[in-house]
């Protein structure tokens, strides 16, 4: 499932980012990078600051220090940009909860993924339906009647509408049945194969390390470990902390 990880130039570079609520930092000096066509996961115990870090990267929280840079010609420092501007820089953020507009139909939700653009919307919706065929059959339904799995697909599809370079996804499998968790990871793999850089916060450590190319471990607001996912999967300390004896080596 994992891609061949190369040391390509990263698309997203986060350097020493400190994020918190009010004046209290929750995540301190976190650094990471994600390349095109790569899935990087952020794992760690509950309350370690994973979602806070993601919000800081996406502009939903204003970082206290550090930088978030999208590579390009030229590189764009997007640190602290408001969330509504992030799309323009090629970054899409999919929150964990409340990630669809319940009173809007599937098609309307997708259209909003290209808000402000008139051309090519229909073609892009067809592309998203090709990636997420489940959505096509439900396109006239309002999002409030979709199942949890379909809502997650819709949130990912909407993020995909704007042709992002980077997608930040917060716990896409939370609350889903094991079957749908597999489906979501399969779709994330397809997004990776299309060249998108994916940074995914995930609670299910075992599955995350199984599916990802690169992994970061956040504990108590600090980045404690990083490396290739397949290496961390056999890291004894990590296995003991997050996965459980006898499961890590698969």
């Amino acid at each position: 499932m994992t891609a061949n990880v190369t040391e390509a130039r990263p698309v997203l570079v986060v350097d020493k980012l400190t994020v918190g609520y009010g004046k209290a930092p929750i995540v301190r000096e976190a650094s990471l990078r994600v390349s095109a066509g790569e899935v990087a996961v952020l794992i760690g115990p509950n309350g370690s600051g994973k979602s806070t870090l993601l919000k800081g990267m996406a502009g939903a929280l204003t970082p206290m220090s550090g930088t978030v840079v999208i590579s390009g010609e030229p590189d764009q420092d997007i640190t602290g940009n408001p969330p509504e501007r992030m799309n323009r820089h090629g970054m899409a953020y999919v929150p964990q909860l409340a990630n669809v507009f319940p009173s809007l139909t599937v098609v309307e939700n997708l259209e909003l993924g290209m808000y402000g653009t008139r051309r090519g919307v229909s073609e892009r919706i067809e592309y998203v339906f090709a990636v997420f065929p489940d959505l096509s059959s439900a396109k006239r339904k309002t999002a409030r009647v979709l199942s949890g799995g379909q809502r997650e697909m819709l949130a990912l599809g909407r993020a995909l509408m704007g042709k992002p370079k980077v997608m930040l996804v917060d716990e896409p499998t939370a609350g889903l049945s094991p079957r749908y968790q597999d489906v979501v990871w399969e779709q994330l793999g397809r997004l990776r194969d299309s060249g998108v850089a994916l940074f995914v916060v995930e609670q299910n450590t075992r599955q995350a390390l199984d599916e990802a190319d690169r992994a970061y471990v956040l504990v108590a607001g600090q980045m404690r470990r990083e490396g290739l996912a397949r290496d961390l999967l056999v890291d004894e300390e990590l296995v003991r902390m997050f996965i459980g004896e006898g499961l890590g080596a698969g």
């Binding site: 996406a58 969330p83 992030m86 323009r88 809007l104």
Partner: peptide, 17 residues
Amino acid sequence: KAQRAVADDVDLARIVG
């Protein structure tokens, strides 16, 4: 549609641009 999106969830509306 943007009005309905803001009515549904103003934070998510900002996130989608």
